[in-house]
Write a protein that binds this DNA or RNA. Structure first.
Lengths: 172, 172
DNA sequence: TATTGTTATACTCTATAACTATA
DNA sequence: TATAGTTATAGAGTATAACAATA
């Protein structure tokens, strides 16, 4: 270690004498982010947390997480698929998908059924209740969640943002 | 439950007879994402994972995670701050920040020192080694990580993306 | 009494190996 | 032998309560 073990004055020298508004952040008050502001990954992560938080708020009446919503959407659009196919598409590892499905199935939102062709695999289907919940969830997401995003960003920016994120998710 | 317990034909009816390229995804091959493509949170999450993955690759020689890098950056830009201030700024809870600092301090990248003013708080400082590692990390991030992002998106899009994400992280 | 750093703890996500039943 | 679903497990990340030292 090369730093002295007692700081305060050593670290911020003649600060107690003059109060120069040299930078936006005073000695107290908000800290300077520095090049953190220019780090895409940093803003990406913080934005993602905010967006998921808002998603949960908007869909709270239906008690669905973003991940659960994505599963229901995918089952609806892709009938006749098995667990591995759905999990892979969503980037969920098969072992971790088991508990997720257990939760959805225990709420009677979807069901596993043995495939007649290959008795190893479970064909996943939405139940009537699953379809109903999905329909209500879609409305909440569109009218509350996405609507708020579009309101904050503006429709054109929202579309541009979506396009860029999709590009990163695929090509990067 | 309202669905029959054996599927296959029930779920995808006359598929074995005709092969109509009705939609981009065949019976096998990639699944249809449906409105998942329009869900900002979904692309946001997948993009974030990709970007963090690339960050880890680029900074691998220095063995720094995005979170650790952000701590070093913040310590450098904000000397004389204590654990609570740094943790709060990064959205890290104080109890969870303890182990993070232990790891950084055990590698001699930063040091805690008792404040002379308030003997409860630990002033955080970068060590010489910490400053050196941070300098190298900044170069790797700029020349490899961010460079690749700018290459994929284009400079104008990269700037626009950063601006929108920062806006979401703050105002949303 | 309030605050700083800390411990303990728990819950979620994620990741890997190995088992079973089928193929 | 290989694959689908599963179990067990371990590791991150995140969250809350409570304690000791200090204010």
């Amino acid at each position: 270690m090369t730093v002295s073990k007692t700081a305060s004055d050593a670290v911020r020298p003649q600060r107690s004498l003059r109060r120069e508004p040299v930078d936006p952040a005073g000695d107290d008050g908000m800290l300077q982010l520095g090049e953190l502001s220019g780090l895409l990954g940093y803003s990406l992560k913080r934005a993602q947390l905010k967006v998921f938080e808002d998603f949960l708020r908007c869909v709270a009446p239906l008690q669905l997480t973003p991940a659960q919503f994505s599963v229901l959407l995918l089952l609806d659009k892709n009938p006749g698929r098995n667990q591995t196919e759905i999990a892979n598409t969503l980037g969920i590892l098969r072992p971790n998908f088991v508990a997720m499905l257990d939760a959805l199935e225990s709420r009677d939102l979807c069901a596993r059924m043995r495939s007649a062709n290959d008795r190893r695999s479970h064909i996943l289907v939405l139940t009537d209740r699953g379809r109903a919940v999905l329909a209500r969830a879609k409305k909440l997401v569109a009218n509350k969640h996405e609507a708020r995003l579009i309101e904050v960003l503006g429709p054109a920016n929202h579309a541009a943002l979506l396009e860029m994120l999709a590009k990163l998710a695929q090509e990067f």
